[in-house]
């Protein structure tokens, strides 16, 4: 069952003695439903990764970094998790994120999606969907609403969208939300 896009899985492991880009590795690409599950069943669950590691899944050809031309004008819908949620929610939220991407869950706005990233961090894990154009309010808010619904988040929970240009110039905890849903 072919997917609309070919996707690439990237793995980042923080080795402080090496430059950031040396710690980022392309694992493999896939473009069928079957190959997605084959890959998913062979890699470590996100909750089992050590702190400082990331998984990224991006459309093939887009590198999982702000600097990529397809990302630099974009931003991310950011889900921040408490430490406790690593064991209760992290893996299911990440899988749901992956299913949103490969299934093209955002209808015509799926073309705006670049990829998704999960950061495993001692202070709290993060999951984000990256889109390519932060100024495209209609697309960004549609994606945010569908994503929040797919994650099963309560209407009381607010998630924010941050432009990469803002994140790059500030520490992420201080980055202002461009949109919220």
């Amino acid at each position: 069952h072919p997917l609309q896009n070919r996707w690439a899985l990237w793995f980042f492991k923080n080795v402080r003695s090496q430059p950031w880009q040396c710690n980022l590795r392309l694992v493999t690409t896939f473009n069928t439903v079957e190959d997605f599950w084959s890959l998913y069943s062979h890699v470590q669950l996100a909750s089992k990764l050590s702190s400082g590691c990331d998984y990224s899944i991006f459309k093939d050809g887009i590198e999982p970094m702000w600097e990529d031309s397809r990302n630099k004008r974009g931003g991310r819908w950011l889900i921040t998790l408490s430490k406790q949620q690593r064991h209760s929610d992290l893996d299911s939220l990440w899988l749901e994120t992956l299913l949103c991407l490969i299934g093209e869950a955002f209808d015509d706005y799926s073309e705006e999606v670049c990829g998704a990233v999960i950061n495993i961090r001692a202070k709290g894990d993060k999951i984000a969907i990256w889109t390519r154009e932060a100024e495209n309010r209609e697309a960004v808010t549609y994606i945010g609403k569908v994503y929040k619904e797919r994650l099963g988040l309560s209407s009381k929970v607010v998630i924010g969208y941050q432009a990469h240009a803002d994140t790059a110039t500030k520490s992420s905890s201080l980055t202002k939300n461009k949109f919220v849903v």
């Binding site: 069952h1 072919p2 997917l3 609309q4 439903v33 079957e34 997605f36 599950w37 084959s38 998913y40 069943s41 749901e96 299913l99 490969i102 299934g103 093209e104 869950a105 209808d107 799926s110 797919r150």
Partner: peptide, 20 residues
């Protein structure tokens, strides 16, 4: 035609692939 799949369809393949 756009190839989109809902979550139930995608999840249905998880165990088919795992049993292959």
């Amino acid at each position: 035609e756009k190839k989109s799949y809902d979550r139930e369809f995608l999840l249905g393949f998880q165990f088919i692939v795992a049993s292959m």
